[in-house]
Amino acid sequence: MIIFLSCIILFLIGLYAIVTKRNLIKIVIGFAFIEYAINLLFALIGFRRGMLAPIITQVDMPHKFVDPIPQALVLTAIVIALGTTALMLSVVLRIYNRYKTFDIAEIRKLKG
C-alpha cells in the first residue's frame, strides 16, 4: 500500500513539473517522470512474494511465477515512451530555433 502510494507521489512530482514549470525542457522531464511512475506501479502490482521471473527453464518445473501480463503491457510502453519523448523534444527544438528561449511566458508574449 505505502509502496504504491510512493509511485503516486512520483506521478504527482511529474505533474507538478508539467503544470507549474515554465521551462519547456522541464515539462518534457515531467512527462518522463509520469511514464516511470506508471510503469513502476504496473510492475509492482504484478509482484508475488517468493516467486520467480516468468521464464520456464525446465519442462516440468512448478509454475511459481510472478504475473507476466503487467510486464508484457509495460515492455511495449517503455519503448513508446522513448518515441513520444523524442517527438516532444523535436517540437521543443523547433520552438527554440524560432524564439531563442525555453520560457513559455516569453513565447506567449512574443506571439502577441
Partner: peptide, 9 residues
C-alpha cells in the same frame, strides 16, 4: 526507428 530518430534529432 530509434537510430533514425537519433540521426534526425
Amino acid at each position: 526507428g530509434l537510430f533514425s530518430i537519433f540521426l534526425s534529432l
